[in-house]
Nucleic acid binder design. Sequence first.
DNA 1: ATTGCTGAATCGTTGAACGTTTCCCAAGTC
DNA 2: GACTTGGGAAACGTTCAACGATTCAGCAAT
Lengths: 244, 244
Amino acid sequence: MAPANPNAENSRFHEPAAAPQGGPASPGGMSRLRVAVPSVATRVATELRLQIAEGALLPGTKLKEEALSEELGVSRNTVREAFAELASERLVVRQPNRGVFVASLGVNDIHDVYTVRRAIEVSAVRGGGSPESIASVRAAVEEGKRAAAAGDSEGLGSANQHFHGALVAMASSERLNTIMSQVLAEMRLFFHKASVDGGFYQDYLEENEKICKALEAGDTELAAERLLSYLDRSEEHQTAVHTS
Amino acid sequence: MAPANPNAENSRFHEPAAAPQGGPASPGGMSRLRVAVPSVATRVATELRLQIAEGALLPGTKLKEEALSEELGVSRNTVREAFAELASERLVVRQPNRGVFVASLGVNDIHDVYTVRRAIEVSAVRGGGSPESIASVRAAVEEGKRAAAAGDSEGLGSANQHFHGALVAMASSERLNTIMSQVLAEMRLFFHKASVDGGFYQDYLEENEKICKALEAGDTELAAERLLSYLDRSEEHQTAVHTS
DNA sequence: ATTGCTGAATCGTTGAACGTTTCCCAAGTC
DNA sequence: GACTTGGGAAACGTTCAACGATTCAGCAAT
């Protein structure tokens, strides 16, 4: 029965979130829009995912369920469900009877992730895409240019992820998209350590431009070829950074 | 009510279950061997996965958590965790406040699944593989031949899945393998409806042989080409079967 | 230094409870 | 008769409290 919940510093997970989007009901054509409020477990998962992505939770960190449940103001079981979600995305690893830890990737994992990327991205590019999907690839390229001009290395990395996400979106495959977003989430895990090497960024920015141009010209094979070589170089770069 | 569970075998999930535990991921690059007994939730998940795979639970069937918890002798929370696992594999879908249902795929899903397969399998084949990995591809081909000779259409389908699993195993990528096994699990969802067309099976059996031969000859490009055309035809076949 | 034990900290799982959402069906209205 | 309205029952989402099991760290004994 709703105890006072003293330390309600983080009770944002319980609010009914009854934000009446759209305010007054529009008369007439009321579409059956799903107002699906994500379950509490899902919200906890997204919160954790975010913290992991922005480096607030470093790889290897142990996540104690009781501590988290208290801190977030949810029950231990709910935290547990959130963990299950994150574990399925490989963002955390479960060690039986020991706890869950933020995943920390080794060089072999890096290679593995790039193997997946080569498979998915190249395939999507080879298949070509609709003009709109190519347009959003272009958008990501421009986003990168702006970030570079502004010297925003954070936004540069973000733009790059958008670029590659847009590439697989060309295939307009629900499953391929979710796989790719998980892979990108995994990459953020070791991006934090990758010191932003300006030279490399400049390099891939040009490469993205070339790939995009090839796509706009309809030469998917050339685009795929360039993408592949980029991925190889990128893997090499990441591997080098993480071998010490 | 669709297929009430025929076998009321109330299997106890608390007994031993000396099943091997693959790899306890390596948060440190170290692979310490663990004799971990799969958690109860995991065992429940595998049980349900199995029943779905063999058609005991048909697509669309509602899985009530209380009923299952009682039937399997575990708590509702545990069943819930198992559901989370299966949901992450797309074998069941969760409808908020309504329950979980065995996933039922539509034609669009079929296309989507094949899109993933084209990406992953072709990429793996293009990359080539070690002699041992090619040997297990050969093994799957022979397995298919034996099943065909014995008129075992069940085993034939199984062998075909082994074949394609072996193809992506060539890339020796942990992530690619798990993705593939999930995709294959999804395919079993609509394989039950696919009336076993003997002619088609004979067809793909020969195709597998050709692909395998190309691999053994080291001509990965030819193998990839044939695989791609097979996947296209297979998708066409499945789509045809499921449009009625 | 190694071995073995004990205790605290956590995890895994259970069982029960309560609020909410959905769904079904009967009653009521136009 | 078709449509809406209003219970209620059924099932889900979430919480809470508890107990056994496992792990780990520290300390005593060999």
